[in-house]
């Protein structure tokens, strides 16, 4: 498939899922009525559409695009298809940062305190991963480092929530580890957007560098690509998008694994093309997952991570199987 056609197709898919996402909810509003209420002020109905369903759909796009993009970027840099923020502990670390900020009250001190705390923790995790696995490092080192970081971050998140004076906090360990978009508002969109947007810009600018890197480090250096700058942008970019996404929606895993895996053959394995395609694909996948949790178990707040793991784990196992045969 030609690249512009693929991007158009993915954008259309996103748009369709976005509209569908606005039409699904417990109130069971007729589609036509829902869309007119969105555009024209019709009291409570408009409130439901604009303040409840719209921010949820927008967040699904933002979170999905962020996770798809960060997966594609990390995989391009590490040249390893297993590098995904959820699997290697970046999301879990971001959740830890967010939980610490919320429970210490730091998150309430200024508007961006929450995403910046998640960003800091996520950035630390990315740096650790790069140190432990290194560019072009083995899959084994990458996954083992990821397992250790995920486990530690997950345990500390549980600890912080268990120590909280808030009786509801301990029940939310599953939210932070699995992610959900239920009852998010525009306050969450505005919290996440500035940090996320910075990350998008940084990651989107990586295309040429990652293309060069796919030929090897020496080739990339001879093309005039500064690997240290590339690495710095990657770390900050991934930390920004994963931190901001996790701070408002919890840690949603596997998006950054599944989407690049499916799209890579369609873009001729070129990182510069995979980046935008993965962003759109991630948005479509999270929109679809968030639609499914509302359709499958409407009143249970089924977590996004549950669905993503069902889709993602088989892909992950398949990748490991393939890697095992080549190594």
């Amino acid at each position: 498939m030609r690249f512009p056609a693929l991007v158009t197709l993915l954008a259309l898919l996103c748009a369709a899922l976005f509209v569908l996402s606005l039409l699904v909810g417990p109130a069971g509003i007729a589609p036509g009525q829902a869309l007119t209420a969105l555009l024209r002020d019709e009291g409570a109905l408009t409130m439901v559409m604009r303040e409840i369903r719209l921010p949820r759909a927008i967040l699904a796009v933002m979170v999905g695009a962020s996770l798809g993009l960060s997966g594609a970027a990390m995989q391009g840099y590490l040249r390893n298809p297993l590098a995904e923020p959820g699997l290697i502990g970046v999301s879990a670390s971001a959740a830890l940062g967010a939980v610490i900020a919320l429970q210490t009250g730091f998150a309430a001190t200024f508007a961006l305190a929450l995403p910046l705390s998640a960003l800091a923790a996520a950035g630390l995790a990315v740096l650790l991963i790069l140190m432990l696995a290194g560019p072009g490092g083995s899959a084994l080192a990458l996954i083992l480092a990821g397992v250790a970081i995920s486990a530690l971050a997950g345990a500390l998140t549980s600890l912080v929530l268990n120590l909280s004076p808030n009786p509801f906090a301990a029940n939310e360990i599953v939210f932070w580890m699995m992610g959900s978009l239920a009852d998010r508002s525009f306050a969450h969109v505005l919290t996440a957007l500035p940090v996320m947007a910075l990350g998008w810009v940084l990651l989107a600018s990586l295309g040429r560098g990652l293309d060069g890197l796919s030929l090897g480090e020496d080739a990339a250096a001879s093309m005039g690509i500064n690997l240290r700058v590339l690495r710095l942008r990657l770390v900050i970019g991934v930390a920004c998008v994963v931190g901001a996404a996790t701070a408002v929606a919890g840690a949603v895993g596997f998006v950054g694994l599944v989407v690049p895996h499916v799209l890579r053959p369609l873009v001729g394995a070129r990182p510069s093309r995979l980046l935008p395609a993965a962003a759109l694909g991630g948005a479509a996948l999270v929109l679809a997952a968030d639609l499914s949790v509302r359709l499958v178990l409407p009143d249970r707040d089924l977590k996004l991570g549950v669905l993503m793991a069902m889709v993602g784990a088989p892909v992950f196992l398949h990748l490991i199987w393939r890697l095992r045969r080549t190594e």
Binding site: V48, I52, S164, N166, A169, N171, E172, D183, S185
Partner: peptide
């Protein structure tokens, strides 16, 4: 309302509720 923070209680501060 309880001290500390929880996602469970965020719904009580949802902008739509204040309308």
């Amino acid at each position: 309302t309880y001290p500390g923070a929880s996602r469970a209680e965020e719904i009580l501060h949802h902008p739509a509720l204040s309308a």
